[in-house]
Amino acid sequence: MHLHSVRTIQATARPSLIIADDHRMVAEGVQHILDESFQLLEIVADGDALVDAVRRLHPDLVVADINMPRCNGMDALKRIREAGIDTCFVFLTMHMEPALAVAALRAGASGYILKSSAGEDLRHAAQQVLAGGTYVTPALGARYISAQLTDARNLTSKQLQVLRLVGEGLRSKQIAMQLGLSVRTVEAHKYTMMQVLGVHSTLELVRRAEELGLLF
């Protein structure tokens, strides 16, 4: 279902909001929940339109689904962050996988809310992320997710490159050739990552990386 852009213009000091969801009823529900505290700038129905709207309007907050046409919410967020825009971003989704929540927070989101949550949960999340905090639906285990993010932050960008190629099934020699490293260096990175993430084999390393959302 496609949704036409909607813009409201109000002379108000309320924080500004863009909603991204390709289901009209969901988008209007979010608008209703946040209407008292936020100024709605626009509703969009796909990821490309979301990126365009954020670049034009620079809202204080985005509430977006992950599954959307043309460009999903995760990719849209990455494009927004690559453009240097630090708008607060909250995902409102049906996906209950903690690994996906971790991946969303690593990509630059500040909130991850399930669509099955109460409206008060969304209101609380919106206020918390605007204040500089992070909010994850309690049902997903916020402490667990926070711990996983801490582990992941201990990996360097080069180690993460190696890890993703390991996750694709490449052998150390292939990874070395692709990244311009020696095989010994690749093996050293793998060993270090195993120590950081508390695993003892390449298979366990890949499984752990999937749990942490590092392979998305």
Rank of each mutant, 00 (worst) to 15 (best):
M1G: 09
L3V: 14
L3K: 04
S5R: 10
V6Q: 11
Q10K: 14
T12F: 07
A13I: 07
A13L: 11
R14C: 02
S16D: 02
I18E: 05
D22I: 08
H23T: 13
V26W: 03
V26M: 07
G29N: 08
V30A: 10
Q31A: 14
H32T: 10
D35T: 05
E36H: 12
S37T: 14
F38D: 05
F38K: 07
Q39E: 14
L41F: 06
E42D: 15
V44D: 04
V44R: 04
A45D: 15
A45Q: 05
D46S: 03
A49L: 06
D52Y: 01
R55P: 00
R56S: 12
R56K: 14
L57I: 00
L57K: 12
L61Y: 07
D65K: 06
M68V: 10
P69W: 06
R70A: 14
R70T: 08
D75H: 12
D75V: 14
L77P: 04
K78W: 00
E82D: 12
G84R: 11
G84Y: 10
I85W: 03
C88I: 00
C88P: 00
C88H: 11
F89E: 10
F91W: 06
L92K: 01
L92V: 01
M94D: 01
M94F: 09
A99K: 11
A99H: 03
A101T: 04
V102S: 15
V102A: 15
V102N: 10
A104E: 01
A104H: 04
A104Y: 02
L105C: 08
L105H: 09
L105Y: 09
R106H: 10
A107H: 10
G108Q: 06
G108R: 06
Y112I: 04
I113E: 02
L114C: 07
K115V: 03
S116Q: 11
S117M: 08
G119N: 14
D121I: 15
L122K: 13
R123D: 02
H124E: 13
A125D: 03
Q128Y: 01
Q128P: 00
V129R: 03
A131M: 10
G132C: 05
G133Q: 09
T134W: 01
Y135M: 04
V136N: 06
L140H: 05
A142K: 12
L149E: 05
T150S: 12
T150Y: 02
N154A: 15
N154Y: 06
L155H: 05
S157H: 13
S157R: 13
S157F: 10
K158M: 13
K158H: 07
Q159E: 15
Q161D: 13
V162Y: 04
V162Q: 02
R164C: 09
R164N: 14
L165M: 15
L170A: 08
I175C: 02
I175W: 02
L181Q: 11
V183A: 12
T185G: 08
V186N: 06
E187R: 14
E187A: 13
H189P: 10
K190H: 04
T192D: 13
M194E: 08
M194C: 08
Q195K: 11
L197D: 00
L197M: 07
G198L: 00
T202R: 11
L203I: 13
L203Y: 08
L205K: 08
V206C: 07
R208D: 07
A209S: 12
L212D: 09
L212E: 07
G213V: 08
L214C: 12
L214A: 11
